[in-house]
Amino acid sequence: MLYAPDTSPIDLPTFHSVISLPYTLTPGRCAGTFLAEMPNRRIVGSRFADGSVVCPAQDFSSLDGEEPEALVQAPETGTLTGFTRVGTDVIGLIRLDGCANEFPHRILADLPAIAVGMRVAARWSDDDKGTSILAIEGFVPAPDAPQGEVKPLVGPAEPLGVIPYAMALNYEHAYGPYYGRMFDEIREGGRVMGVRGSGGDDALLPPREIDDITHKRTGTWKACADTGTIRACSIINMEVYGQTRPVPYVYAEIVLDGASTRMIHMIDIDDLESAKKSIKPGTRVRAIWTKGERKGAVSDIERFEVIDA
């Protein structure tokens, strides 16, 4: 399959998936102080034993990992040492006056006005007055700016212990021929289909071309029942970020009739104590499909329920 020429210009759907998380990141003493000083409109650097000053402040030297001796206040002026444009943003490297290092930031000027070696000055943001490096909106050309000086940092703010952060990652996953067929069958027929393993009649769910265990080709397609047996289960009774169902409920690994591998799903319960007794490995269950139009996803099965003996 993978060696055939790509002759099929079929517009295949993808499976959209989002991973989105809040974080509380600790910047450490130096960066924490730098960020804490942003609302005070002071630029904090760190001074090392050899007298060199690095800005923005770093807990560890980029050159050798040494720790700084003191925090200092860096000037707001410096020199542009390199630049580029990405999209509409100009990103430059700036060496603040009296500092040994360079760092990246936005350059707020049109390209023809920008040259390596030019004098620049920080422009404080009118909008962002918070504890972000973007409280400095960027650097602007400042041809006449006098040479700034590094000064002692008088009365430094307490370093920030944590800063809130968010990361969101978006994916468009390919279904491939096997998941594509499986989810299409779920959507169109309300039917869970797998492929036979390399050495038996029971179906692998989810289906795939190569058997995980034998690394041999899997067999033909097979429809599984929407009834099955619990292989393993536990009772979820705690709330965690991102959960979509109210607790308590049962997390279940179910082997559908006709399959050999597990499907992960959930079972509604009334209460914890009765579920301990009524739902266990070996318990027979059936799928309860969602009402209305199916999407072609595992969630087309709303839940499983116990088949009364």
Partner: peptide, 15 residues
Amino acid sequence: DPFWGREFAVGIMGF
């Protein structure tokens, strides 16, 4: 697997 079971996962504690 984002296609198969992630929405029911509770870390690996449930498992």
